Deep mutational scan, measured.
Amino acid sequence: SDPSEDRAPESARVGNIPSSTSALKVPQLKVAESAQGPAAAHTTDTAGYNAMEESVSREKPELTASTERVNKRMSMVVSGLTPEEFMLVYKFARKHHITLTNLITEETTHVVMKTDAEFVCERTLKYFLGIAGGKWVVSYFWVTQSIKERKMLNEHDFEVRGDVVNGRNHQGPKRARESQDRKIFRGLEICCYGPFTNMPTDQLEWMVQLCGASVVKELSSFTLGTGVHPIVVVQPDAWTEDNGFHAIGQMCEAPVVTREWVLDSVALYQCQELDTYLIPQIPHSHY
């Protein structure tokens, strides 16, 4: 159930021909089969995070001529859309010479989310990475209204306002976009420790780096000194050995919190207090 199309920051360009055919990675995205229709094609874990990302398996898109002007500035990904909605975005992107990729990268400028009429969405990996990267996180209605009015409308009017977990109007995407000089995790050293489900560890690490944190791979690698705040992030329900995560405190002095601390902080683009996310640790033995 991992969102495989989000696994690594590679891009698939639509609308320009790469210098070599080997560089072309066409979105071959799968549809989750469901008797209840597209709305039930998501699996949500206890964290309220949509693990099964969206989309559609299609034939290789038709490439435009390399001489045609390509908008190098805009690059989009989509999240939560049905196959039909994805194809509408594809046509919109081609019309406006926008790069459409299946994986979010540093070059991505827009994340197009499936939302309700009030621009509230589910939480997906692309949603988190879009906010963390200060990108435009907009409703699919931006595409449909632009098509209806036959011009590209202003993104401000379609920015995602909230999500089904953290609140319907928290304005996290807007706050992140306007606060890239004040990253929420700066001054923190974060170790993403142990197993994680539904989200590859490297993507979680990239997320906290985008928010200004330094990533530490091992508990023994924390910088011990003033001005640096170490934090260990774990996902308790992913551990097979009972309560192993309670013993992390015996290996390092850092506070240990659940992954929800990261996800909530990123969604709201406000660093949350650790208290409600802390995992009790077995104290050091004193002999």
Rank of each mutant, 00 (worst) to 15 (best):
residue 4 S to E: 04
residue 5 E to L: 09
residue 6 D to K: 08
residue 8 A to N: 10
residue 8 A to H: 05
residue 9 P to R: 05
residue 9 P to H: 12
residue 10 E to H: 08
residue 11 S to N: 03
residue 11 S to T: 10
residue 11 S to I: 07
residue 11 S to K: 02
residue 14 V to P: 07
residue 14 V to C: 14
residue 14 V to F: 06
residue 16 N to E: 07
residue 17 I to Y: 10
residue 19 S to C: 07
residue 24 L to C: 07
residue 25 K to H: 04
residue 25 K to D: 15
residue 26 V to M: 09
residue 26 V to A: 03
residue 26 V to L: 13
residue 30 K to H: 10
residue 33 E to S: 03
residue 35 A to L: 09
residue 36 Q to P: 14
residue 37 G to S: 05
residue 37 G to C: 08
residue 37 G to I: 08
residue 40 A to E: 05
residue 40 A to K: 04
residue 40 A to R: 11
residue 41 A to L: 12
residue 43 T to S: 08
residue 48 G to R: 09
residue 54 E to L: 10
residue 54 E to C: 09
residue 54 E to V: 09
residue 59 E to I: 06
residue 60 K to A: 04
residue 62 E to G: 12
residue 63 L to G: 03
residue 64 T to N: 06
residue 65 A to N: 11
residue 66 S to E: 05
residue 68 E to T: 04
residue 69 R to K: 10
residue 69 R to G: 15
residue 69 R to C: 13
residue 70 V to S: 06
residue 71 N to S: 14
residue 72 K to G: 07
residue 74 M to P: 04
residue 76 M to Y: 03
residue 76 M to G: 03
residue 76 M to T: 03
residue 78 V to D: 03
residue 79 S to T: 03
residue 79 S to N: 02
residue 80 G to K: 04
residue 80 G to C: 06
residue 81 L to P: 03
residue 81 L to D: 01
residue 81 L to S: 07
residue 83 P to S: 13
residue 85 E to I: 05
residue 86 F to T: 04
residue 89 V to K: 01
residue 90 Y to S: 10
residue 90 Y to A: 08
residue 91 K to S: 09
residue 93 A to C: 11
residue 93 A to F: 03
residue 93 A to S: 04
residue 93 A to P: 01
residue 94 R to L: 14
residue 94 R to Y: 15
residue 97 H to A: 13
residue 97 H to R: 11
residue 98 I to Q: 03
residue 98 I to N: 10
residue 99 T to P: 11
residue 99 T to V: 02
residue 100 L to S: 08
residue 100 L to C: 12
residue 100 L to Q: 04
residue 102 N to T: 13
residue 102 N to S: 10
residue 102 N to G: 14
residue 103 L to W: 07
residue 104 I to F: 15
residue 106 E to P: 10
residue 107 E to G: 05
residue 107 E to W: 09
residue 108 T to W: 05
residue 108 T to P: 01
residue 108 T to S: 13
residue 112 V to T: 03
residue 116 D to R: 01
residue 118 E to K: 05
residue 118 E to A: 09
residue 119 F to I: 02
residue 120 V to G: 03
residue 121 C to R: 01
residue 125 L to A: 08
residue 128 F to P: 00
residue 128 F to S: 00
residue 129 L to R: 03
residue 129 L to H: 07
residue 130 G to P: 01
residue 130 G to L: 00
residue 132 A to Q: 00
residue 132 A to V: 01
residue 133 G to P: 01
residue 133 G to S: 09
residue 134 G to N: 08
residue 135 K to N: 09
residue 136 W to P: 00
residue 138 V to L: 11
residue 140 Y to R: 01
residue 142 W to P: 00
residue 147 I to T: 15
residue 147 I to Y: 15
residue 150 R to L: 07
residue 151 K to P: 01
residue 152 M to K: 03
residue 152 M to C: 04
residue 153 L to T: 07
residue 155 E to G: 03
residue 156 H to P: 05
residue 157 D to T: 08
residue 160 V to A: 04
residue 161 R to P: 05
residue 163 D to K: 01
residue 163 D to M: 00
residue 164 V to K: 03
residue 166 N to Q: 01
residue 168 R to G: 07
residue 169 N to S: 04
residue 170 H to R: 03
residue 170 H to T: 05
residue 174 K to R: 12
residue 175 R to A: 08
residue 175 R to K: 14
residue 175 R to L: 09
residue 176 A to C: 05
residue 176 A to L: 01
residue 176 A to Y: 01
residue 178 E to H: 12
residue 179 S to I: 03
residue 179 S to V: 05
residue 180 Q to A: 06
residue 180 Q to C: 04
residue 182 R to T: 11
residue 182 R to C: 11
residue 183 K to G: 02
residue 183 K to R: 06
residue 183 K to T: 04
residue 184 I to S: 00
residue 184 I to T: 03
residue 184 I to A: 04
residue 186 R to T: 14
residue 186 R to G: 13
residue 189 E to W: 03
residue 189 E to Q: 09
residue 192 C to A: 10
residue 193 Y to F: 10
residue 194 G to R: 07
residue 194 G to V: 03
residue 195 P to A: 05
residue 197 T to W: 06
residue 200 P to L: 14
residue 204 L to I: 05
residue 207 M to R: 01
residue 208 V to Q: 03
residue 212 G to L: 02
residue 213 A to S: 09
residue 214 S to T: 14
residue 218 E to W: 15
residue 218 E to R: 14
residue 219 L to V: 11
residue 220 S to A: 15
residue 221 S to R: 11
residue 222 F to T: 15
residue 225 G to W: 08
residue 226 T to G: 07
residue 229 H to K: 09
residue 229 H to M: 14
residue 233 V to P: 00
residue 235 Q to P: 06
residue 235 Q to K: 05
residue 239 W to E: 15
residue 242 D to R: 12
residue 243 N to T: 15
residue 243 N to M: 14
residue 244 G to C: 11
residue 245 F to R: 05
residue 246 H to S: 12
residue 248 I to K: 15
residue 251 M to R: 11
residue 252 C to W: 05
residue 252 C to K: 07
residue 253 E to L: 08
residue 254 A to K: 10
residue 254 A to V: 02
residue 254 A to P: 05
residue 256 V to R: 02
residue 256 V to K: 02
residue 256 V to T: 07
residue 257 V to I: 10
residue 257 V to G: 01
residue 257 V to E: 01
residue 258 T to P: 07
residue 261 W to Y: 03
residue 268 L to D: 04
residue 269 Y to K: 05
residue 269 Y to V: 13
residue 269 Y to A: 08
residue 269 Y to T: 11
residue 270 Q to W: 05
residue 271 C to G: 06
residue 274 L to S: 07
residue 274 L to A: 12
residue 275 D to N: 03
residue 278 L to G: 13
residue 280 P to H: 03
residue 281 Q to T: 12
residue 281 Q to R: 12
residue 281 Q to K: 11
residue 282 I to M: 13
residue 282 I to S: 12
residue 284 H to T: 10
residue 286 H to M: 08
residue 286 H to V: 15
residue 287 Y to P: 13
residue 287 Y to A: 12
residue 287 Y to S: 11
